[in-house]
Amino acid sequence: MKNAWPILTVVISLLAIWYAGAVWMNAQWVRDQAARAGTTVTVSQLFIGTMNLDRPVLPAPHQVVMELWKTVVDTSITSKRSLVYHAWVTLSATLLGFAIGTTAGVLLAVGIVHNRAMDMSVMPWAIASQTIPILAIAPMVIVVMSAIGITGIVPKAMISAYLSFFPVVVGMVKGLRSPDAMQTDLLRTYNASATQTLWRLRWPASMPYFFTSLKVGVAAALVGAIVGELPTGAVAGLGARLLAGSYYGQTVQIWSALVMAALVAAALVGIIGVVQRATLKRMGMSR
């Protein structure tokens, strides 16, 4: 816990910068209002005014927290005003896509490790695909799938799956190849089949790589689901909240959706981290 103080200091100073920024960026609006009313503002009035605008340029942190409280705690989760409802819409697509993408990625990685032709043909493309802004195809996937009658959670999940697929493939190929020559030779002297080598050596050895790529993949999947919600128009989900907020200038709503997305991302990565630590500890691989 020796890092607790430094982290706390950094977080507090970030919040202080945020407050200062809110005063600075909203000051113009407050002054304009006062000028229109034919009055002048004192410094303290300016400060209070910038903190409590309806549609501030930059909402103060406490406004975002209040909006979050209002939409998370005070609203029933079945209501369309509830941020929990929207977060669940996004989260369900993320998890479905993440599961599909991870499974497909692991299967392809196993294929690549066992089949030389597949390795040489697919692997360069899998690596090259990481330099391509795949997210750009999201609007097309959504629109085309709705044109052939597939709507709802599946198109978003496809984008999430696609985004989490490649990091998992690349990470798992590295992981499945991580046992060194001595270990694979040992299994050969035991006359182990490829399947036995996979289950008894390669798969356990790949676990650290597996969890690392899961963390990358789940973050990518969440971004994919959020962006996937943009082109359908603002229907439901965190991406829709962002878009609706930007249409109607509801900055507080944008920021609260953003904070919610950050919390969801942190929770997903955190859960994987906990599972990782527990698993690696049981396997005797923790550092």
């Binding site: 950094v10 969440l222 962002l242």
Partner: peptide, 21 residues
């Protein structure tokens, strides 16, 4: 010590969301 964990945390967030802002 303070910035590294915060930076690692932020790197995992869906930062594209700040686009509308």
């Amino acid at each position: 010590r303070g910035l590294l964990p915060v930076g690692n945390f932020v790197a995992a967030l869906p930062i594209v969301g700040i686009a509308p802002i």
